[in-house]
Amino acid sequence: MKIVVIDLQNERAGLIKEALAEAGFPDVVVVAETDRLLERLGELDPDAVLIDLEAPSRDMLEQMFEVSRQVKRPVAMFVDDTGESSIAAAVEAGVGAYVVNGLAKARIKPVMDLAISRYNAFTRLQTELDTAKAALAERKLIDRAKGILMKMRGIEEEEAYKLLRNTAMNQNRRIVEIAEGIVTTAELFHQ
């Protein structure tokens, strides 16, 4: 079974390709965004297509679905026999699946399930990464503010941090907001 994966995120596409290979689907082609999507899909002639729901080209893929109704290759959005639950899970995870040539539903079900779980895992990882990045950026900002206070007021690091923390508490704001104000002000004075 040949599967085409349309995904803007190379890393995620790579993960899916790898996972599908492990699950016994070695014939996977990753297609990045292209303005000749339908031609490309025609050449590749896949049995199933997985698409990232953030891809603007999804509406182009839907055209294939309509054109195919009149010609030789019926393409349909994958709908599980169990009803709406699996579509909801896929849409929520951010992935769509299309089957070509009436491929047996039983054969695509594991592919779909795997895609859903990988998309969810990827989103989770990305959220964690974003949180970590944000935390790091905040810590850097607080360090810079501490440095400025130490220099301007001739105080020790611990005292500078206390000053930041107490100001934040008194104003009912976050330490990073106070730090941001100090850094911005210092930058203005040095321009």
Partner: peptide
């Protein structure tokens, strides 16, 4: 990003 997404 797409009408298909909205519909789904």
């Amino acid at each position: 990003i797409s009408w298909s997404n909205i519909r789904d």
